[in-house]
Amino acid sequence: MNRKQRLLTHLLLLLAAAAYAAPLLWMIDTSLKREVQAVQIPPVIIPHPLRWQNYRHVLGDPQFDFSLFARNTLIIASLSALGAMLSSSLVAYSLAKIRWRGRGLVFGIVLASMMIPFPVFMVPLYRIFRELGWIGTNLPLWVPAFFGIPFFIFLLRQFYLTIPRELSEAALMDGCSHFGIWWRIMLPLTRPALLVVGLFSFMGAWNNFLGPLVYLTHQSSFTLSVALQVYQSRSGGTSYNLLMAASVLIIAPVLVLFFLAQKTFIRGIATTGLK
């Protein structure tokens, strides 16, 4: 690359970065303004004075019980992550490392079921959860994760296939059970992949909106996503500076998690597209 090209590349990169960062920066910016300043024309770029009270106001709002909603979300997200990691790796192991009749069919179902849109299940699942007495509890949002998530089964199976057959066969010869192999050999070997699954399902549960919107009927069990929408649409409305402050509060944990796990994230996403 010559200098001109390099300059052009940098320019384009800067443009792209500006376009992608601007909405988030504007969100933070608005969240630190008074309402009157937030709607001023022409827009005020640097909030003055910095209004940290907005955050205190949001956190202290009885209608937006952040700590409660964060807790609800965290419980659902953690249990989903745990369930997805355990069940998906078990199933993936069976599909990749054990020879049994019907596994081809099961793998086919795994692939096909990724294409089924959620609305097809929405109504009958609601009925099933009603019969189980689960409506109004958080069970519908995490219990299914313990029964294997197709996308993650697929992902982990691809990982298991890259592990040499000899390894598990030798262990079998030594009298090790499949469960032992899975627990002692496979799980440690594929820890990064497992973590990807955990992270993704955690994030999926954190960001999920339609599920909680349908299944969580009691305000006290709401997740952050639903709570944010409710905060926006409550009677009398909510001004944008407060809405942006609430949004910052909901986005922040996700971004923190991302910065802690940047590599795992990028790695994980990168592998999903391959083969």
Partner: peptide, 26 residues
């Protein structure tokens, strides 16, 4: 065969409870 099915059991149950049955009901 048994081990394979046992390992896949969570998903097999899941398929029945959260896939095939709801699909048919829907």
């Amino acid at each position: 065969q048994l081990a394979g099915m046992a390992f896949a059991a969570p998903y097999l149950i899941g398929v029945a409870a959260f896939l095939v049955y709801p699909l048919a009901m829907s």
